[in-house]
Design a protein around this nucleic acid. Structure first.
Length: 665
DNA sequence: ATAGGGTTAG
């Protein structure tokens, strides 16, 4: 019964519609069924003969089994067979009724067959069902998707059926054409006319308001929803949440959310995602926890929306727990979830886990590859990153886009592969700002400072802070103090309200023994009321995150930590207060190395974590140069891997070396 | 018996 013969172009054999039927209409595209469309190709008949057997079992006197059959086939995606069934109904004289027509129209839509859709329209007219509300909304959808939204509008206006469904269908078509204003206007007209409004039409207009970022229209729709008692319909509530978020009012969204009587996994996911987008990672994790304690079981979308938060703050434990949850509940590991997991592992410092998830993926998409390339650069594994990029280039199913190129440029920068980087840069058709910044970073960190400067001029990046910062990095690595000073000055000019630029400047003066100038700029920062970010480092231990500031003595084990560090510094023969580098934190220069936040966090790890696993620390600034040297020594002395994530990359300290340095340099 | 809708990663 299920295996029907398939044949190429199917045309309906029965000419139910005469041309004249629709001739006197004034639609934007006259509905005209040309005689050719009703001509029956010979090949068809043979197929019908074969098909006949299959249909012989279905009684011709009853439409119901036929309608059901079309419905089932359509649901299973057997569109060709659905068309054949409709055709057989006509051939055998089965009554085509109000239930048949919407399904036939849906079939035409699914097949992308506009001539067929027009024919079914003709059948509807001939049979007197063209004004049936179900038929009308199916017609609107069919015309809108297969022809154009204007002809859908024409159908909408032509028939007096104005129920919320036909309105929603038309509004959705406007949205698909990116004309949210028209959808909103239509809604307001409906309200004025006193038409019935239901939860779906509200949901649709709220999408339109969000698309337009129109808080005004959104609030109006909210009012209407409240009046109709539909405000807390879960679909409407979730649409309202989304609308407030898209209109940029997280406040309204939160207020509404807290008043929602029944929140579901979508409500939570919507808000979690909004927090993640705003960089409020702790809040998004809290919400996720609240969701779980509300008795809502996380589903794949909710997990993938909170995973980015785990990767960006010190919450790798949460990320791993989420991975376990997915496994335990046997939730679907779709590409979105897997990509989010890989990215989380990369950003939490677990390169091997990311590799493992990647290896288990059946269908790798552009995101999967890019996550791997970018992740490798983050860990100083530039060669491996380039290797993945080559894999991506060889995969015919994925498109190598701008983000992928940016990732490979960063991979080249992380391992100072200048030649490869230039090669890839030249492959990019229209380089964007991000690509250029990565190139500056590659050239500058490779010590090609003149070339980097020339590149900045060529691509007119003199006023792009990120490009200047990339250049400054090169100056720091290669001790180009004069150029460095010029770049810092430029940054201060460019962003006079960014306190971190003045911190760079005052530390530059302090470093070159000009304490008066340093003091002058420190006072200036205070006078201007600017607040530079203070330095903190975090480390996870037994379900807790321990935070350390510069010179912090507030931790209960502080004394032990300082003692431990002093011992280590002595053993490593590093003078505890020697400081020979530029900082990007003001206090760090004054504070002896053993008081730097990353050192305290690492010391805490050394004294608290018995097993030989890696010690993982996160810092909210660049790691200080002195600490970098000291941690190399500590990794060697303790025979233990120390991993520090700073604002630029991961530093894997192992046996006296760091992954961020290229041996030959 | 039939039509329309909200959440997921680089």
């Amino acid at each position: 019964m299920e295996s029907l013969p398939s044949s190429s172009p199917i045309h309906l054999p029965v000419p139910l519609v005469e041309q004249t039927l629709l001739e006197n209409t004034n639609g934007p595209r006259p509905l005209r069924i040309t005689p050719q469309e009703n001509v029956q190709p010979l090949g068809r008949i043979r197929n019908s003969v074969i098909a006949r057997k299959v249909f012989d079992e279905i009684p011709v006197s009853d439409s119901l089994p036929w309608n059901r059959r079309i419905e089932t086939l359509l649901r299973n995606g057997e569109i060709r067979n659905a068309i054949l069934t409709y055709e057989q109904m006509l051939l055998r004289g089965v009554r085509v009724d109000r239930h048949t027509l919407p399904r036939a129209l849906a079939t035409a839509l699914a097949a992308g067959d506009f001539p067929l859709g027009k024919q079914v329209h003709g059948h509807a007219l001939k049979l007197g069902h063209a004004s049936d509300p179900y038929v009308v909304s199916s017609l609107i959808e069919m015309y809108g998707s297969l022809d154009c939204v204007e002809s859908a509008r024409w159908v909408f206006n032509k028939f007096p059926v104005r129920n919320p469904v036909s309105w929603s269908v038309l509004a959705k078509l406007y949205l698909a054409e990116n004309k949210p204003k028209l959808a909103v206007d239509l809604f307001n007209k409906m309200v004025k006319l006193g038409s019935q409004i239901d939860s779906v039409s509200l949901g649709t207009v709220l999408v339109a308001c969000g698309r337009m970022r129109s808080l005004h229209d959104g609030r109006y729709a909210h009012q209407i929803a409240r009046k109709l008692g539909l405000e807390f319909d879960i679909f409407v509530s979730n649409s309202l949440l989304r609308m407030y978020i898209e209109c940029g009012s997280l406040k309204d969204a939160q207020a509404f959310f807290s008043g929602m009587p029944g929140k579901d996994v979508i409500s939570y996911t919507t808000l979690i995602q909004a927090h993640v987008k705003m960089g409020e990672f702790n809040d998004s994790l809290k919400l996720f926890q609240q969701m779980v304690s509300d008795g809502i079981s996380p589903d794949p979308p909710s997990v993938s929306s909170v995973l980015p938060a785990c990767g960006r703050i010190t919450a790798s434990k949460c990320g791993r727990e989420l991975h376990c949850h997915l496994l335990r509940k046997e939730l679907e590991f779709n590409p979105k979830v897997q990509n989010a997991l890989m990215d989380m592992y990369m950003k939490s410092g677990f390169l091997e886990y990311a590799l493992k998830v990647f290896g288990e993926m059946k269908e790798k998409d552009a995101v999967s590859w890019t996550v791997m390339v970018a992740g490798c650069s983050l860990h100083g594994e530039g060669n491996l990153g380039v290797h993945f990029f080559s894999g991506m280039e060889q995969d015919p199913r994925v498109d190598v886009d701008g983000l992928a190129y940016n990732a490979v440029l960063q991979a080249c920068a992380s391992s100072r592969m200048v030649g490869k980087g230039k090669y890839y840069f030249n492959q990019i058709r229209a380089p964007e700002l991000g690509h250029c910044i990565s190139m500056v970073s590659l050239l500058a960190s490779s010590g090609l400072l003149d070339e980097a400067t020339a590149f900045i001029e060529k691509w007119k990046l003199e006023r792009t802070p990120e490009a200047l910062r990339a250049l400054l990095d090169g100056c720091r690595i290669h001790r180009e103090d004069k150029l460095g000073k010029r770049v810092i000055d430029q940054l201060c000019d460019l962003q006079p309200l960014n306190p971190e630029n003045y911190v760079l400047l005052l530390n530059w003066y302090a470093h070159f023994d000009k304490p008066d100038m340093a003091r002058k700029y420190r006072e200036m920062i205070l006078d201007m009321g600017l607040k530079p970010r203070r330095a903190f480092s975090w480390i996870e231990h037994r379900n807790k995150v321990h935070a350390f500031g510069t010179g912090d003595v507030s931790h209960p084990r502080s004394q032990r930590l300082y003692w431990e560090l002093e011992q280590l510094m002595e053993k490593a023969r590093i003078s505890a207060d020697l400081d020979y580098s530029l900082h990007d934190v003001d206090e760090e220069r004054e504070c002896p190395l053993v008081g730097h936040s990353e050192m305290l966090a690492v010391a805490f790890g050394l004294v608290s974590k018995e097993s030989g696993g890696a010690i993982r620390v996160t810092k909210n600034h660049r790691i200080c140069h002195g600490c970098h040297g000291a941690l190399k020594a500590i990794s060697r002395l303790k025979g233990r891997e120390v991993i520090v994530k700073d604002t630029r990359c991961f530093h894997h300290f192992r046996g006296g070396f760091c992954s961020c340095e290229v041996p030959s340099l």
